[in-house]
């Protein structure tokens, strides 16, 4: 992105022609982008308290650097308001954190969603939806913050299909996947507080997910049956987690989080239950050839869990107050190939 699109147009004031030019140059995710004016880019930088040349991240394995002006340009193109910029910047810092190991989830045939989860007061202030349709469309902040991250990946880090993005299928969440935790209605402390931040601070958590598995249970009034269904979904025989033991994000929507809250279960109890029950025997895994080799005596009693420990079950509350639905988001990788990263949102 070193050439201005407008300089190649006969009529740079025609927005439709400008949008076409961005398509022709391969600078979009397939949807139209907002042509970034100098004023809009400057407003985005100012809202982040940034200078154009500020370094926001380095992807060591790719030998790439992410500068603030490029992030601002892509945030404008994604449709962000300037006040979203601190969240976008925190997401980019998470993406380029060494623990996240960008190259793996960005490039792998596994085609991960980069899930952007917002905690703290900024979520409500800028309108990141945490309630009805939390993973879906209809909310500008959710739609455009996640999209800005993906456009930075494509336009700044050259993470494009067939090249440095080798997704076999990808997922619709690769256009944008951003939501906030519903802290007000959660029975537990918010995720960022669990990670050592103050409640009044805001954070962005970056997680590489395979996708979303929705988990239904409209009958049970007890935690155990609900959580058993969740654990079963978490440990399906096709999942990457069951052989990789990566982090595991679990999201409880309104009716389920209320049930767990009323039952008096702590978040740790929920995590422990899910860790204990989301597992498969070596015999099961060998039978479907997710593990190599013949079944051996004792394999029926040897287990692999879907994640490393109870602490790597990452529990969030989000979604509508009505509906007996929750979800698990299987990880793209394993602990060695990347971890979930939470970064502080810095507001100027």
């Amino acid at each position: 992105m070193t050439t201005t699109a407008a300089s190649h147009l006969s009529d740079p004031s025609d927005p439709a022609a400008l949008i076409e030019t961005y398509y022709e140059r391969g600078w979009t995710d397939g949807l139209p982008v907002v042509p970034p004016s100098r004023g809009a880019i400057e407003a985005m930088l100012a809202a982040g308290g940034l200078r154009a040349s500020d370094l926001l991240g380095v992807i060591d394995t790719r030998n790439q650097r992410i500068l603030a002006d490029k992030v601002a340009i892509n945030a404008v193109m994604a449709g962000c308001k300037p006040e979203y910029m601190p969240v976008v910047v925190a997401a980019i810092k998470g993406l380029s954190h060494p623990d996240f190991h960008y190259h793996g989830p960005a490039t792998s045939t596994g085609g991960s969603n980069i899930v952007v989860i917002v905690n703290g007061p900024i979520a409500q202030r800028i309108g990141v939806n945490a309630k009805d349709n939390a993973f879906g469309p209809g909310f500008r902040a959710n739609a455009t913050i996640g999209r800005a991250v993906r456009l930075v990946m494509m336009n700044v880090l050259n993470t494009r299909p067939g090249g440095l993005d080798r997704s076999a299928l990808g997922t619709p969440g690769k256009y944008s996947f951003c939501f906030a935790e519903n802290e007000a209605e959660s029975p537990w402390e918010p995720f960022h507080v669990e990670r050592g931040f103050k409640r009044e601070q805001s954070t962005v958590t970056i997680y590489a997910a395979e996708g979303v598995i929705q988990v239904s249970n409209g009958i049970s009034n007890r935690p155990e049956p609900l959580l058993q269904g969740m654990a079963d979904a978490m440990a399906n025989l096709g999942s990457r987690n069951i052989t990789g033991q990566g982090d595991y994000v679990v999201v409880f929507a309104g009716e389920h989080s209320a049930l767990l809250g009323k039952s008096g279960w702590s978040k740790k109890q929920v995590k422990q239950y899910l860790y204990d029950h989301a597992r498969r025997t070596l015999a099961d895994l060998k039978r479907v050839e997710r593990l190599p080799g013949p079944s051996e005596p004792g394999d029926e009693n040897r287990w692999l869990h879907a994640t490393e420990s109870w602490e790597t079950v990452l529990v969030f509350c989000a979604g509508g107050a009505v509906g007996t639905k929750s979800a698990c988001l299987p990880a793209w990788g394993s602990p060695k190939s990347g971890r979930t990263v939470t970064t502080l949102v810095v507001e100027p």
């Binding site: 790719r62 050259n158 067939g162 090249g163 440095l164 080798r166």
Partner: peptide, 12 residues
């Protein structure tokens, strides 16, 4: 993975 390899080499 040839195009991916070429892209990595170009980055470096």
């Amino acid at each position: 993975f040839r195009p991916t390899g070429k892209e990595m080499a170009t980055n470096w």
